[in-house]
Amino acid sequence: MPEVIVENVHKSFGMVEVLKGVSLTVERGEVIALIGRSGSGKSTLLRCINGLEKINSGRIEIAGHTVSSDPKQLRALRTDVGIVFQSYNLFPHLSVGENIMLAPKIVKNVAKAQTRETAERVLKLVGLSEKFDAYPDELSGGQQQRVAIARSLAMQPKVMLFDEVTSALDPELTEEVLNVMEQLARDGMTMILVTHEMAFARRVATKTIFMHQGKIWEEGLSKQLFSDPQTPELRQFVKADVK
């Protein structure tokens, strides 16, 4: 059974239909890259998948949960689905360690010693062991983003969603974040990532989905999709990126 099922999802903001019948499935351990022009609905799709936006019609299942509007079900879903945003969104009043330990402690009631252990493990994973007691505003953007990833990982999610997590970063800092994500992919995490890093998508994603005007315009194995785009829209999109 697939880890993520999106079936004919429609989503409108007011009069504007942003998702016009999107369907996709993701198997366990797969890495899916979502690409497309600005405004094509990539973020909206990602946010619908973890219930941050309500869908108008269709069905979404993820990690064994159905996306509904019931707060309790949504919370159960979110313990299994992590999301990382473009703007990091660390809690500025908490240290790095506290940022990571907060949710496991209060949501999952994990014992303190164990949350600490987990926090140290995930921080090590993102290469920031020495920053446990630092505050978010003492870190670079890339470091903050890696902490945000670690914070999600501490919940031990089955699926991770990434929304343009490197768009706000300088090239050098982008690299360190992408490395962490690549490591996660290699360790078998199921991931859906919205990205503008075409080279990364091509190298790391098993499948790539090109979105255009609220629809899945073209999809396929990453290598194939990039080297042999079928639609003129994707061809143009890929060409624009090479330039």
């Binding site: 979110r78 945003f85 969104n89």
Partner: peptide, 16 residues
């Protein structure tokens, strides 16, 4: 509002 979203995504209740 991103602070609301981030904490919501970590499965916190509204009270939390």
């Amino acid at each position: 509002k991103q602070q609301w979203e981030a904490s919501e995504s970590l499965a916190m209740t509204r009270t939390q």
